[in-house]
């Protein structure tokens, strides 16, 4: 058994964002493509939490959707436990599908409002036939509810009878019901209040320890990622600019973008340190800058950065895509 559970190789996804044909002809525009994910590669080892962090438009949710097969990749490969995921081959996918699950961002939209909690949680069991018989399913649902900190009496209720945090617990119970090894968590707490977020994050960590789960954790919140992840990948405009071990990334960020992100996080410790002001904004992804896409905002910019695209260079615990790092300027 290999140590690596999920391997993503050169994953790319482009979206056609062209205007309708008639408008293009009239306005004399060419077809336009948006490269939402650009040549992203990473590995996730069994039992670890790998986090992808980035701002809006960085492509993190697109990667999550491709990993679980909700969106086909334009290019590249996703290997789950050594097996290639192929959305088009239904037989192979059914086999794989029972081994991974997803927890979504909005606890309000992720549960069907017309379904009772019992049916919501039982759906994956029924779909994969992992548990047979009504009695067995019911008792498994009760077990799962207990596992996520709800009661068996909640099984007969509808989602609207629960608070946001409780709904996210139900969504977690559903994700666990087919006994997956791997769970993609797409901003699982960004719609929750912080005290509830703490409950859900703790629960997710407990479940990971108890069930030996592997997480791909998607978030825009650096402090949450800091708390959850063993390894972290930083995305900027669809490309992975830096990967590193969790602690290392926060202690010694390499890529200038990572540095900027860390700088921008509000300081709760009230150390009174001065922030250097963040420069510029994320460019339009349809028309990204040439060379290194971060160069217009970068304080370490050199001539090379404006023309050439950097390749990943090794850092103590990972790699970074930056000429300044390569040249030892950072």
């Amino acid at each position: 058994m290999s140590d690596v559970l999920l391997e993503v190789k050169n994953l790319t996804r482009t979206f056609d964002v062209s205007l309708p044909w008639l408008n293009r002809v009239i306005e004399r525009q060419d077809r336009q493509f948006l490269r939402a994910v650009d040549n992203v590669s990473f590995q996730i080892r069994r039992g670890e939490t790998f986090a992808l962090v980035g701002e809006s438009g960085s492509g993190k949710s697109t990667i999550a959707k491709m990993v679980v097969g909700l969106l086909p990749a334009s290019d590249g490969q996703i290997l789950f436990d050594g097996q290639a995921m192929d959305v088009n081959s239904s037989a192979a996918m059914t086999q794989l599908r029972s081994r991974f699950q997803m927890i979504f961002q909005s606890p309000f939209a992720s549960l069907n409002p017309r379904w009772r909690v019992r049916d919501v949680i039982a759906e994956p069991m029924k779909a994969f036939g992992t548990v047979d018989g009504k009695a067995a399913i019911d008792s498994r649902v009760d077990e799962l509810l207990d596992l996520v900190g709800l009661g068996a009496s909640d099984a007969g209720k509808f989602p609207h009878e629960f608070s946001g945090g409780q709904r996210q617990r139900i969504a977690i119970a559903r994700a666990l019901s087919s006994n997956p090894e791997f769970i993609v968590c797409d901003e699982p707490t960004s719609a929750l209040d912080v005290s509830v977020q703490a409950q859900i994050l703790n629960l997710m960590r407990d479940l990971q320890d108890e069930l030996g789960l592997t997480y791909l954790f998607i978030s825009h919140d650096l402090s949450v990622v800091r708390h959850m992840a063993n390894r972290i990948g930083v995305l900027y405009l669809g490309a992975l600019v830096e990967t590193a071990d969790g602690k290392e990334l926060f202690k010694a960020p390499r890529h200038p973008y990572t540095r900027m992100l860390l700088e921008a996080v509000p300081d709760l410790e009230m150390t009174g340190k001065e922030h250097s002001v963040v420069k510029g904004e994320i460019p339009n992804p349809i028309d990204p800058p040439p060379g290194c896409t971060f160069h217009p905002r970068c304080e370490f910019v050199a001539e090379r950065c404006r023309n050439d695209i950097p390749v990943p260079v090794p850092t103590p615990t990972g790699e970074a895509k930056c000429f300044a790092v390569e040249e030892g300027r950072i």
Binding site: S163, A198, L262
Partner: peptide, 23 residues
């Protein structure tokens, strides 16, 4: 409880403080 439940960049790798229940 609220302050303890906020994950921070500085804090060591321990559990977040958890206020039981909901408002």
């Amino acid at each position: 409880g609220l302050m303890g439940s906020i994950p921070t960049l500085a804090q060591e790798d321990d559990r977040l403080v958890q206020i039981p229940g909901a408002m």
